[in-house]
C-alpha cells in the first residue's frame, strides 16, 4: 500500500510533503508537552524497529499472503510519536527494499500517518468510559485497527486512481476504488482482530506499554 516513485504528479508529491511537514511540526509540539519526552524517545524508537520488523511477517491467506500494517496499533501505543515512527519506517523501507519511494515519502506518510493519529484519538476514548471497560477496550481496539487500515486504503486508492489517469471517467474511477476496497475490507477485519489480540496481550503482560 505504498505509492511508488514517478507514479503520481509532482504537485501531489509536494502536497504530501507539505502536509507531512505541518503534521510533524504539530506532533513535535505535542511531544514537547510530555512530562519526559527524552525518556520516550528510546521507547518510541525500539517500538518503531519492532513494528517495522512486524510488517515483514507474512500471514498466509490462500491463495496469497498479506503482511500486517498495524498503523492503527502504532497510533494506539505511540500516540503522536507514531507520526514520527511512520516516516522513519517508510524511509527504511524505501532505502532498504525500494518499496515506496523518496519523492513519495510525504504522500505515503500522510496515507499511513493521519489514520494512525485518528486511531490514537479513537482508542483514547476508552479513558472516558467507566463501565464495562474491558469490553470497550476491545471494541475500541478493533475499531482503531480496522478503521485506520480502511482510512489508509481509501486514501491510497483515491490518490493512486484519481491522479494516475486524469482522463478516466468518474464512474470507472469510483468502481475501481470500490473494488479495491473490498480486498482491503478483509484486511481491515484481520488488522482489527490482531489489534484486539495485541491489546489484550499487552494489557495482561505489560500494561504500562499502553500508556506512553
Amino acid at each position: 500500500m505504498h505509492i511508488p516513485d514517478g507514479l503520481i504528479p509532482p504537485s501531489v508529491c509536494l502536497a504530501g510533503y507539505a502536509i507531512t511537514g505541518g503534521t510533524t511540526w504539530y506532533a513535535l509540539q505535542q511531544i514537547k508537552k510530555d512530562s519526559n519526552p527524552q525518556a520516550n524517545i528510546p521507547k518510541a524508537s525500539l517500538l518503531t524497529a519492532a513494528f517495522f520488523v512486524t510488517s515483514l511477517i507474512h500471514i498466509p491467506i490462500p491463495p496469497t499472503s498479506i503482511h500486517l500494517i498495524l498503523n492503527g496499533m502504532m497510533g494506539a501505543i505511540l500516540g503522536y510519536y507514531a507520526f514520527l515512527a511512520i516516516p522513519i519506517g517508510l524511509f527504511f523501507q524505501a532505502v532498504m527494499f525500494n518499496h515506496g519511494g523518496i519523492s513519495t515519502l510525504g504522500v505515503n506518510t500522510v496515507i499511513m500517518g493521519l489514520p494512525a493519529i485518528a486511531a490514537y484519538h479513537l482508542f483514547k476514548l476508552r479513558e472516558k468510559v467507566s463501565r464495562k471497560r474491558e469490553l470497550w477496550t476491545k471494541i475500541l481496539a478493533f475499531a482503531s485497527g480496522a478503521f485506520a487500515l480502511l482510512l489508509s486504503a481509501t486514501l491510497f486508492a483515491a490518490i493512486a486512481i484519481s491522479t494516475i489517469s486524469p482522463d478516466l471517467d468518474a464512474a470507472t474511477e469510483r468502481n475501481a476504488i470500490y473494488v479495491s476496497l473490498i480486498g482491503y475490507g478483509i484486511q481491515a477485519i484481520i488488522e482489527g482482530t490482531v489489534t484486539v489480540m495485541l491489546i489484550s496481550f499487552l494489557e495482561k503482560v505489560k500494561p504500562e506499554l499502553l500508556n506512553i
Binding site: 517500538l47 511477517i57 490482531v194 495485541l198 496481550f201 499487552l202 503482560v205 506499554l209
Partner: peptide
C-alpha cells in the same frame, strides 16, 4: 502473541 512479545521485549 509473537508480535506482542516482540513489543514487550523491545520496550
Amino acid at each position: 502473541r509473537l508480535i506482542g512479545s516482540l513489543l514487550v521485549r523491545s520496550y
